[in-house]
């Protein structure tokens, strides 16, 4: 069975773990739908991280693993956000895993 996300009457292809197969298909309005599947309701704090990983991907062409995400967020948004505790509060099943999924990006390698 093909895994898909229905969006504006279109079927967006997902991989088996729910990541978009083609990250260029992602649109801002898709994020709440993917988040809902993860049982997350997006707040501005979530968006800040989702936008961050999106920009990270556009800059480096790779999804950040958790340790790298923590470090990079710490460098640009400050230490109170660049720590695993804060990020796990927002994304309980793994910030790198869930934020990249909601941002329509590939799963990071060696992901916790």
């Amino acid at each position: 069975m093909v895994n898909t996300l229905e969006f504006n009457g279109q079927q967006i292809e997902l991989d088996q773990q729910g990541y978009l197969k083609n990250h260029t298909q992602w649109l801002t309005d898709m994020a709440p739908l993917i988040a809902a599947k993860e049982n997350i309701e997006l707040t501005p704090a979530h968006w800040e991280v989702v936008n961050f990983v999106r920009e990270f991907y556009l800059e480096y062409n790779t999804s950040p693993a958790i340790r790298v995400l923590v470090k990079a967020i710490g460098q640009s948004l400050g230490a109170e956000k660049g720590n695993s505790k804060y990020l796990y509060t927002l994304f309980p099943e793994g910030p790198a895993k869930q934020a990249t999924k909601i941002a329509g990006l590939p799963k990071p390698a060696k992901c916790i």
Partner: peptide, 10 residues
């Protein structure tokens, strides 16, 4: 993958 070389310091 070239852009990804920039991520190494992180």
């Amino acid at each position: 993958y070239i852009a990804t070389f920039k991520v190494l310091p992180l």
